[in-house]
């Protein structure tokens, strides 16, 4: 059967479109992270503590221990999804959780923590979203593993569930924890 080549044009346009979308999709892969951020020090900042607005926190606050830095907000439904697991980690696991309250209203954020429980050692108020930009955050929730020298070792996009903890975060933390 002879085929009219012109009739193939829509199919080709569509194929190009799909390639672009597939590419865009791969960029949004939950485990995708710009490589330049890994093994770099946590970006410098000077921001207030959510519960002690007079206290200024800097990048020194994330040094000293291996810690989990969790980007959260009251407007983010998935933050509520991961919240029970964060509560469990804070009470059962031996790793400090540090919150970054992102693009949020501090009063609402404190009310949220009062209501559901506070898993964080402290929360950094990033109301202007500057720290989140420096961290390259796509959206809340995201969780970073920062080692005792304040270097970012891993980044997880999306809610932390039991499986994510067991299969991804916990092994990475163990690996960092073993000296070598």
């Amino acid at each position: 059967m002879m085929m009219n080549r012109k009739l193939l044009v829509p199919l080709l346009v569509f194929a190009l479109l799909m390639m672009l979308l597939a590419f865009g999709f791969s960029l949004r892969d939950p485990h995708y992270l710009p490589s330049e951020l890994i093994d770099r020090p946590f970006p410098a900042f000077a921001l207030a503590d959510l519960h002690w607005p007079d206290r200024e926190l800097t990048e020194d606050a994330v040094r000293g221990n291996i810690s989990l830095v969790n980007i959260w907000a009251t407007w983010c439904p998935n933050c509520l999804v991961e919240h029970p697991e964060l509560m469990r980690i804070s009470s059962e696991e031996d790793i400090p959780l540090i919150g970054v309250n992102y693009n949020d209203e501090s009063a609402a954020a404190r009310a949220w923590l009062n209501r559901y429980g506070n898993p964080y050692e402290f929360s950094i108020v990033d109301d202007a979203g500057r720290l989140a930009i420096d961290l390259g955050v796509y959206g809340a929730p995201e969780t970073f593993i920062v080692d005792s020298n304040g270097v970012i070792r891993y980044r997880h996009v999306g809610p932390v569930t039991r499986e994510v903890w067991g299969e991804i975060l916990s092994p990475v933390i163990k690996q960092i924890g073993t000296p070598g």
Binding site: M3, N4, L7, L11, A15
Partner: peptide, 12 residues
């Protein structure tokens, strides 16, 4: 994809 392929074959 399949409908556009069908189109390319049959539409003439």
């Amino acid at each position: 994809g399949s409908s556009l392929t069908l189109y390319a074959i049959r539409a003439q």
